[in-house]
Structures are given as structure tokens and as C-alpha cells.
């Protein structure tokens, strides 16, 4: 009895997917929308499968993954130490808070022309704009994580005789980890958005953004939908990946 209930519960998230596919197939089957604009689910997923396994879509997928991961990694390497530094002194953070908030609020896509001038047309521009956007998100979260470290925990370390450096490394750093992971997850999502947009519009020959754009230009609708699904799957997978890493390393978060 309970076993059956558990299975039903586990299948619940699939209900929405099934409904979407059913509506899609129905609309397609009844020719409610021009089939050129909306190909059948079967045709779309066939294109997705063939593209991903040995086709060009797979190559583009990998390019986008590499760019997104590199920009997030660069952002993390710069923003995490900087965030810890800023967060460990509230005065220091307050003095640059406006700048961080301002550039965090500036759409990263508005920075494309500037970065094009600085780095030219190529991967360096795409990766650096994405790193810029992701970096600010990570920085802000890390700094807040450090600043909001539980006072009692810091006092406890101090009262046991921990030096300032010990408190920083043994307590503040770990205290800020849950918030750091929030920053990393938001950062990687933003990096993906920026990379895909950059691939569409700044002289790319590969990547998922370029694939979507090119398919649209060629009116290859199954190819376009396939590329969109690939991008969606990538975004979802990256978020899931960081969640799993977070659960592994920040086992105490929320407890």
C-alpha cells in the first residue's frame, strides 16, 4: 500500500511533462499550428538525439559547457577570496557595497561592446563577460555569508583562544560556505545565460546559442527546438550538479 503511494509520489513530477507532450502532440496532430513552425515531438527528439550523438549539436553543447564552466571557475577563483576579504571587515564591504550593487544590477549584456573593445571577437570576450557577471553574484553572496556568520560561533572560537586568522579559517570560511554555494549556483546560471547570448550575437562559429540562431536563420525548426532543449537540459544539469556538490560539502546547511 505504502509502496504504491511512494511510487505514485515519485512519478508526480512527470505529470507536467506528460501533459506538455500530450498537448504538443495533439496540437501537431490536429494541425492547429503550422507543422513547419511546430514539428512533432517525435521529429524534434529524433533531431535532438541524432544531433547530440555524433552530430554537430553535440559539439556545440560541449563548447557551451566548456565556456560556462571556465567563466564560472574564473569568477569563483577571483570572487571567493575577495568576498571573504570584504566580508571579514564590514567597513570595507560598506565602502564598496554601492559599486558591487551597481554593477550587479547592470545587465551584463550591456557590457558586450566594452569587452569586445578590450578582448576582440572570440572566446576571451564571451568568457570574460560571463565571468564578470557571475563573479559579482558570487562576490556578493560570499561577502554576506562571511558577514552573517553566527556571532555565538565566532565568540565560542574566540573564547577557546582562537586567533583572528584561526577564526577566519576555522569558523568564518565554513560559516559562509552555504551562502557561497547559493552564489555559485546563481553564478553558473547567469554565466550560461550570458554565454548563450554571446554565442548568438558576437561572431561565434559554434556553441548552443549560435546553433539556435543558425537553425532559426535556416528555418530548421526541429534543429532549433532541439538546440533549445539541449540548452535547457544543460542549465538544469548545471544547477543539479552544484546542488549535489553542495549537499556533499555543506552537509549542515539548513540544519
Amino acid at each position: 500500500m505504502t509502496g504504491r503511494k511512494e511510487i505514485a509520489r515519485a512519478l508526480l513530477p512527470l505529470v507536467g511533462v506528460v501533459i506538455l507532450l500530450a498537448v504538443w502532440a495533439l496540437v501537431n496532430g490536429l494541425r492547429l499550428v503550422d507543422p513547419v513552425l511546430l514539428p512533432s515531438p517525435a521529429a524534434t527528439f529524433r533531431t535532438l538525439w541524432e544531433g547530440m550523438v555524433g552530430g554537430k549539436l553535440g559539439v556545440d553543447f560541449v563548447r557551451t559547457v566548456v565556456r560556462t564552466i571556465s567563466s564560472t571557475a574564473i569568477a569563483a577563483v577571483i570572487a571567493i577570496p575577495l568576498g571573504i576579504l570584504l566580508g571579514s571587515s564590514e567597513k570595507l564591504y560598506r565602502s564598496v557595497e554601492f559599486l558591487i550593487d551597481f554593477f550587479r544590477s547592470t545587465p551584463a549584456s550591456a557590457m558586450f561592446p566594452l569587452f569586445l573593445v578590450l578582448f576582440g571577437v572570440g572566446d576571451r570576450t564571451k568568457i570574460s563577460v560571463a565571468a564578470f557577471g557571475a563573479g559579482l553574484v558570487i562576490l556578493f553572496n560570499v561577502a554576506y555569508g562571511v558577514m552573517n556568520a553566527r556571532k555565538t560561533r565566532l565568540l565560542a572560537a574566540k573564547v577557546m583562544g582562537a586567533s583572528r586568522t584561526r577564526v577566519l579559517f576555522d569558523v568564518m570560511l565554513l560559516e559562509s560556505l552555504p551562502q557561497t554555494f547559493v552564489g555559485l549556483r546563481n553564478g553558473v546560471s547567469l554565466a550560461l545565460v550570458i554565454i548563450v547570448v554571446a554565442e548568438m550575437f558576437i561572431g561565434s562559429t559554434d556553441g548552443l546559442g549560435q546553433r539556435v540562431f543558425e537553425a532559426q536563420q535556416l528555418f530548421d525548426m526541429p534543429g532549433m527546438y532541439a538546440a533549445i532543449f539541449a540548452a535547457g537540459a544543460l542549465g538544469y544539469a548545471l544547477n543539479l550538479l552544484f546542488l549535489l556538490i553542495e549537499r556533499r560539502f555543506v552537509h549542515w546547511a539548513g540544519r
Binding site: 553566527r150 556571532k151 555565538t152 560561533r153 565568540l155 565560542a156 573564547v159 577557546m160 583562544g161 582562537a162 584561526r166 576555522d170 569558523v171 565554513l174 560556505l177 552537509h251 549542515w252 540544519r255
Partner: peptide
């Protein structure tokens, strides 16, 4: 020193054993 709020005074990233041993580590 023992705090009222044990939840916030212990280090959740360390097992209980390492929490107890932490002052010795210092």
C-alpha cells in the same frame, strides 16, 4: 565557557568528537 545557545555555539561541520577536541587543536 558554555553558551545558552548550543546550536550556534557548536561547529556543525565537525563531528561531536572533533568539536570536543577543537580547543586542544588550538
Amino acid at each position: 565557557y558554555v553558551f545558552q545557545n548550543y546550536r550556534e555555539a557548536l561547529f556543525p561541520w565537525l563531528p561531536a568528537f572533533d568539536n570536543i577536541a577543537y580547543p586542544l587543536k588550538l
